[in-house]
Computed example of a mutant assay.
Amino acid sequence: MGHARAPVTSLTQGELELQLGYAQIDQNLVVEVEINSLSTADSPRISGSDPDHVESLAAAQAPLPPIIVHRPTMRVIDGLHRLRAAEIRGLDKVAVRFFDGNEAEAFVLAVESNITHGLPLTLAERKHAARRIIDSHPQWSDRMIASVAGIAHGTVAEIRRRAPGGPAAEVSRTGQDGRVRPINIAVEGRRLASELISENPGLSLRQIARAAAISPETARDVRNRLRRGEDPLPKPRSRKRTEHANGPAERPNGSAAEEAGTLLDRATVRHRAEIMARLKADPALRFSNTGRTLLRLLTIHTISAKGWEEIIDNVPPHVRATVARLARECGGVWTEFALRLERKVAESA
């Protein structure tokens, strides 16, 4: 006989809804469904469920949130571990929210759901998922697929290049904001700006930027390059070649720079990611509002070292000082947060 069911609870709106605009989940409808009527096939979790994680969920006192099921196929989209935990508890039914999109959309939802909460997909699983999404949504940009699969957009680009037949011949892709843009938008924008400047030298930088869909600063750079007789497109920098020829680039002196280098070290970032995986598997954090908020805040800091470097390199020059100041203030908030937690640890010891 199954255990008595606690009242059905729900995940927060933000955890269940995709930010892609097509998720068709009725947030107000939760139904009890026979476990033996559900399918766990075609999951992005190709390694299957994690026994330890299932055991921790089954032992948790809190009621388990509803799982998400693809109504047309009755396939579990999100909640494989909760389903297994319900089986261990001896339950015959499980709380379900239904998704009514097509199978390709269901797979995308499954991938995004399993990188935003619960036990995260492994890197191999995320790469495998990205390959499938490239096939089913070739019009999506690398950044859009990366945001769904939880990997770097450069990794998506490499997967796309290695796909049979190479990259698709489309001239535009859909970005995360839903807008369709040319694939070579930077090249096209600079080319158009150079033509406008040549044909209409009296145009202001803002007029050029607006017409070419680039920033005024880029328009200024194009104009300056044309005045110097240079190509409007900057040559790609070969950072690795420069470092190999001239030796490793020198880091700024001072403890702050040394500390930053440590924080962005690959091994350190990987260690933080491993800790986050354990925290995300803890039911005490997963199934409370404050716990989920804390996990979302901490997840930000599991970006790869390469990801941090890319962000640093691409902060616009005119806001670098402001961003640095704000980042330092945020660091101060985390420092105070850590001190107060450590104080509580000492008090309870």
Rank of each mutant, 00 (worst) to 15 (best):
D26P: 10
R220P: 00
G90D: 06
S49Y: 13
T218Y: 03
D78S: 07
P63D: 12
R296M: 03
K127S: 09
A212G: 07
N102R: 01
R278P: 06
K235V: 12
P120D: 11
S238Y: 01
K235R: 07
L11S: 10
D92T: 14
R320Y: 01
K127Y: 04
P216D: 00
A129L: 09
A163M: 11
E170G: 11
A257M: 00
A104N: 14
L64Q: 11
R266Y: 06
A321I: 12
V108W: 11
L11H: 10
V96H: 09
V345A: 14
I311A: 09
T335L: 13
T218V: 09
E342Y: 00
V315P: 05
P63V: 12
I151A: 14
P51D: 09
G307Q: 07
H81K: 09
P234A: 00
E103H: 02
S37N: 06
E310W: 10
G229I: 00
S348Q: 15
Q19D: 14
I67A: 06
A130R: 11
V319L: 04
I197E: 03
A245I: 15
E217I: 08
A284D: 15
G14V: 11
S172D: 08
P252M: 00
R292I: 06
S49D: 14
R82P: 03
V33E: 13
H70C: 05
A129P: 12
Q13W: 12
D78K: 04
E112T: 06
T335M: 12
I35D: 03
